[in-house]
Amino acid sequence: EEDDHMEFCRVCKDGGELLCCDACPSSYHLHCLNPPLPEIPNGEWLCPRCTCP
């Protein structure tokens, strides 16, 4: 299965362990989110761009 998510964080543009949005190709480091997440959430996760009205 091919993964179309970005291979770098949308905020800092660095690679590493990234959290991928379930609705778009964006990826983020947990510490780059505002507010930062302490751990990878269970289940579906939507990035700030997808949850913003």
Rank of each mutant, 00 (worst) to 15 (best):
L37Q: 10
L19W: 05
L19N: 02
E7A: 10
C20Y: 14
P53V: 02
W45T: 01
L18E: 01
L30M: 14
L46K: 13
T51H: 06
L33K: 01
M6D: 06
W45L: 03
G43L: 07
C52M: 12
C12R: 01
V11H: 12
P53A: 09
P41W: 04
P48H: 12
W45N: 03
P38R: 02
E1C: 00
V11Y: 10
E44S: 12
E17T: 12
C20V: 11
H5S: 06
N42M: 08
C12T: 02
P35L: 04
E7I: 08
Y28W: 06
P25Y: 12
R49K: 14
L19H: 00
V11G: 13
H5G: 05
S26F: 10
P53W: 15
V11Q: 11
L18R: 09
L37P: 08
L18H: 15
P35W: 04
Y28G: 03
E17K: 11
H29D: 01
L30V: 12
E17M: 08
L37Y: 08
N42D: 10
E17S: 06
S26N: 15
T51Y: 07
C12W: 03
E17R: 06
P35F: 05
D14K: 08
P36Q: 14
C50A: 02
E7R: 10
P36W: 06
L46T: 08
P48W: 04
D22G: 13
C52I: 05
G15D: 14
G15I: 08
C47H: 06
P41K: 11
S27L: 10
W45P: 03
L30P: 14
P36E: 06
D3F: 15
P48K: 04
S26Q: 04
H5E: 03
E2Y: 04
P36G: 07
D4G: 04
E17P: 05
Y28Q: 03
P48F: 15
M6R: 10
C21S: 00
C24D: 01
P36L: 06
C12A: 00
I40R: 08
E44N: 09
I40W: 02
G43N: 12
L19K: 04
P25D: 14
C21L: 00
L30K: 10
C32R: 00
D3S: 15
R10N: 12
E44C: 10
E39N: 14
C20N: 13
E39M: 08
E44R: 08
C9E: 02
P53R: 02
K13D: 11
G16C: 07
C47F: 04
E2R: 10
A23K: 14
C12G: 02
S27F: 15
C32Y: 01
K13F: 03
D14P: 00
R49D: 14
S27K: 05
P25N: 11
D3H: 11
